[in-house]
Amino acid sequence: MTAPHAPTPSQTIGPFHGHALPVVDGGAIAPVAHPETITVHGYVYDGAGEPVPDALVEIWQPAPDGSRTGAPGSLRRDPVTGRAAGRDGVTFTGFGRVATDADGRWAVRTLPPGGVPYLSVALFARGLLRHLYTRVYLWEEPGDTLLASLAADRRATLLARPEPPRTYRFDLRLQGAGETVFLEFSGAGRP
């Protein structure tokens, strides 16, 4: 059977997801006290330059060894109380989820991705009919034609700014001056 099934449309995440989707340790992707841990943080701004306090940021990335299989355990639950239990502190799941705070700020602690120079981001917010994809490039690598295809000012929106030691700043601008490059993937891989 090859006839594609018609996709279910996206709808906005709305303003009231903060009690449902973010979890304890959602941004603590790196195992506890891992010496290679990096911090990636920034703000989300709208087209009026105002911070976005009700966004959800999801991160997906390869493990440091390049593995892309991920692992369960990003959203662990305590079977006794039913509440979020946090991560086990050991497993690298490759996935993170954090809400922006009242200042529009988000932060994750993770390990550098293996084999690629970027973290993948899905951004959800009230007012977005569909979520937005982008990438946090932690460094530039020759041969990365996504970066190479972009004009310098656009490319700059995908490059995290190093704040040594081991910290990177990455702001997301939804619209207007310095608007972040957002991605779509319908031509990648297989339909």
Binding site: T12, D46, G47, A48, E50, V52, A125, R126, G127, L128, L129, L132, L146, S149, L150, L174, Q175, G176, E179, T180, V181, F182, L183, E184, F185, S186, G187, A188
Partner: peptide, 14 residues
Amino acid sequence: GTRYRTPARPLVAV
């Protein structure tokens, strides 16, 4: 709510 939150530039195809 979409007014200031929808990107003005086209998405870039990967």
